[in-house]
Design a protein around this nucleic acid. Structure first.
Lengths: 337, 337
DNA sequence: AGGGAGAAGTTATACGTAACACTTGGGCGT
DNA sequence: ACGCCCAAGTGTTACGTATAACTTCTCCCT
């Protein structure tokens, strides 16, 4: 019988099975072949089951010097996108006996002092989405293996990076609209200082530079319906020829653009085309459904975790960008003029 | 200087500061008043800073017998709702020096064998959203303190429960529609066997029973746009007088109902009223904006964590339901007939 | 018959931390 | 002058696990 309140240890199991603690460790660690007889092994397993034995992970971690736990830092959890990243990362992790702890931080990893805030777990490595430069150095100083998601590969101080091919997504959107005949564009940009948004702006600008006869206006807004609405409304009522297509940095911004268009009495897509980026469930809830770029969040998370596992094994992580896919729906059409 | 690759321990700090390891532990644990002189304490802190010392959490956890880490089990991460629950729980946890590890499980906690899947962290307690009965017993057997969210208080085997006052939300929605003059209702129910959805159905039915001259149809669908669309479309084209109001178990289902209404050529809210439940960002992206019930997810998470902390302290957790609030927007109006 | 190889274990140890119990030296009251 | 107390530490131990190193015993080959 269990002696009251405290959880049984491997020693309790050993006593119950009439063997030494070492034998228990061997059996339960599946290293008993040729070291313990099958009947004894079975006896140990039975005793463990009987007592409801669960290994003490703190002790195991201390002994082994590793925790098989990694930290995933995401800027926010409020979107399906990072939920998907987590799901993918956790799936791969589980296949390798790893756990994933989440640290949602509004501003990526915090300052050098206590960079992980409340993430208490003992860690083997870190996957981070957005991160201040000094925090990056702090982590590097901690010697913690690090993989960065959607970050500038040239500024990563040697950390491995895994990126979505956002630039290609922007190219696909732009080409799609150009083929439809659009020439005057509005870029509704996310007001967040992050590499992934810089890439959007840069790629869009350079693509349109190559095409004569095009014009590009840009406006910025925090990622929220209200802000996106007012920013778009202002931009569309500015004097001069009105843009015929709005390219948004993500789907939520696009939803704000929808509202702005409606408020101005513009029909989508007849009077104005709108595109997003993410392909959230929201994209198909809008009316008409949103033309957008599908980001495979789960695959992104998977690749991030695979890269981290590679680093942990001392291997070189793969370095290919994850492809993205244009999804054409009802929010884009040839311009009416 | 650090001796190469391995991370510095408290003993390294002690050596650098010229004191014993015990003194380092006292100083860094802030228990040095009256035991170590201020100047020595400062010297220790400086040495720790210099070496970039970080305590080994595995060792600390083993020594203290607790981890200051709790597990939050959520059915899915794909919605802002559980993101909010996590945010609230993590905030309260951080205030008490706790960390929160997330375990998103499609079916709540798994079967008795290895109930936490890949959640490897050593835990002090568990907060769980939805859970199979046998998994519940398994955890109880583990002696892990447990708080259950939105679960049947009578079936919780003595575990503490924290609930949103969903029944009141359903009452508010129903009364709102009744006051507008609606009498024929369609209930678009989530096809998920969970207490929180049972409450919705039960409360709605009992509320309408009390009001003579009302009728209630019900249909079920998994929480996805496509399924909600087809289910609603079928239900609305069934022979007999058409319902004038659709009450949906959550906002995502409502978005599906919007599409079904549009496909049938019904205008919202002129021809049909639609209500949701959650108040996701989606609710304000829809056109017209959705009348729904606001659930304060963060407060929910906070209360859950507070309850767990109470259990960990041996106190009795508070047992009040968290109030919810009807938010009337553009998707409800008096019936046209 | 002798010994070497393997099977079937056991004993002992280290991981890094926190805290209890102990030591030392000086200051102070009477 | 004696004892006592307090400041300022140090020595030691235990937490539960995994594993290297050791011990027995039996079997089998030459």
């Amino acid at each position: 019988m269990a002696r009251g309140s405290t959880r049984p240890t491997s020693r309790d199991v050993a006593e119950a099975a009439g063997v030494s603690q070492a034998a228990v460790s061997l059996v339960l660690g599946d290293k008993w072949r040729g070291r313990v007889s099958p009947t004894t092994a079975e006896r140990v397993r039975h005793a463990a089951q009987e007592l409801g034995y669960r290994p003490n992970l703190a002790a195991r971690n201390l002994r082994l010097g590793r925790t098989r736990t990694v930290l995933l830092v995401v800027p926010a959890l409020t979107t399906e996108f990072f939920a998907g990243v987590y799901t993918g990362a956790a799936r791969v992790a589980a296949q390798h006996g790893f756990g994933v702890v989440l640290y949602p931080s509004p501003e990526g990893i915090g300052p050098a002092r206590d960079p992980f805030g409340s993430a208490q777990a003992a860690l083997d490595g870190v996957i981070a989405s957005s991160m201040a430069a000094d925090a990056l150095t702090a982590i590097r100083g901690d010697q913690l293996p690090l993989v960065m998601l959607d970050s500038d590969p040239t500024g990563s101080q040697g950390a491995a990076t895994v990126n979505l091919d956002i630039a290609d997504g922007v190219r696909q959107v732009t080409d799609h609209l150009l083929e439809l005949g659009h020439r005057r564009f509005l870029h509704l940009a996310a007001d967040i200082p992050s590499w992934t948004f810089e890439v959007r702006a840069r790629e869009l600008a350079s693509r349109l530079c190559e095409t004569p006869g095009t014009s590009l206006r840009a406006t910025r807004a925090p990622i929220s319906f209200e802000d996106a609405l007012t920013a778009t409304q202002t931009a569309l009522t500015t004097p001069g020829p009105r843009p015929t297509a709005v390219i948004c940095d993500d789907d939520k911004l696009a939803a704000g653009a929808y509202k702005a268009a409606r408020r101005l009495g513009l029909r989508i897509p007849d009077d104005i085309s709108i595109t997003g980026l993410d392909d959230l469930a929201l994209a198909r809830a809008l009316d008409p459904e949103l033309t957008t770029v599908r980001l495979d969040a789960e695959r992104f998370g998977e690749q991030g975790m695979k890269a981290l596992l590679a680093v942990l094994d001392g291997r070189t992580p793969p370095q290919e960008d994850i492809p993205v896919e244009l999804v054409v729906r009802g929010s884009t059409a040839p311009p009416s003029a």
